[in-house]
Simulated assay, not measured.
Amino acid sequence: MKRKLVLLLGILLAANVSVSAQQNYKAKFINAFTRYMNWPDQSKHGFFNIGVYGSFDLYKEISEETMGRSVGNQNVVAINILKENQLDLTKLHILVVGRKYCTPENLNRITSKFSNSYTLIVTEDNGILNGAGISFQNNGTALGFKYNLDNINNKGIAASGQFKSMGQGVN
């Protein structure tokens, strides 16, 4: 019985580390997106805001990963967004939508809020784009992302060749 308990505890810890490691990798991807994409000149003033809606753990990782960084002459600021009505409060360069809000209805509503902005929308769910530019995908042991170049370009954002080689393009 004691061995079973120790084994179960070990499995739970490994799963928890895996989730934490995934959040860390996602934060590193977000950081890379800021380097391999170019936002329009109209959005290159003030802070470079990265909003995270619905995933406090990912917000913490992004905050730590981007602390002290800048994009061009803009300091990066991570913003934890708790409620959908807070999405309208500040200009966002990147919005990461947490897994629990990645339903087609929610994504359609969220993407429509940003239809006339220079905001790159990233979904945390497994390959669900629904109007977003990027979606993380977990293939068992590997974390990657899919992207829709049309959705990114429609935001006035230019993706570099290096960005395109990092992920999988879809239409």
Rank of each mutant, 00 (worst) to 15 (best):
A32C: 10
F33M: 12
F33C: 02
T34E: 10
R35Q: 15
Y36R: 11
M37Y: 08
W39G: 02
W39V: 07
W39A: 09
W39S: 04
W39P: 02
Q42W: 08
Q42C: 13
S43M: 07
K44D: 14
H45K: 10
F47L: 13
F47Y: 11
F48I: 06
N49L: 08
I50N: 06
V52M: 01
S55P: 08
F56N: 12
F56K: 15
K60T: 14
K60A: 12
E61W: 03
E65C: 05
G68V: 05
G68H: 06
G68F: 01
R69A: 05
S70N: 09
S70I: 09
Q74H: 08
V76E: 01
V77C: 06
I79W: 01
I81A: 06
I81N: 01
L82P: 01
K83G: 01
K83E: 15
E84A: 01
N85D: 13
N85W: 06
L87F: 00
D88H: 04
L89M: 05
T90H: 10
K91T: 08
L92E: 11
I94R: 02
L95C: 04
R99I: 14
Y101H: 12
Y101N: 14
C102S: 11
T103L: 05
T103M: 06
P104H: 06
P104C: 03
P104K: 06
E105W: 03
N106L: 05
N108D: 03
N108E: 05
S112W: 00
F114R: 00
T123M: 01
D125L: 10
N126A: 12
N126I: 08
G127V: 05
G127A: 04
L129E: 04
G131I: 01
A132L: 00
G133Q: 06
G133I: 05
Q137P: 07
Q137K: 14
N138G: 09
N138D: 08
A142E: 11
A142K: 15
L143M: 14
F145A: 05
K146L: 15
K146Y: 13
L149R: 07
L149G: 12
D150N: 14
I152L: 05
N153V: 14
I157F: 03
A158M: 15
A159W: 09
Q162A: 11
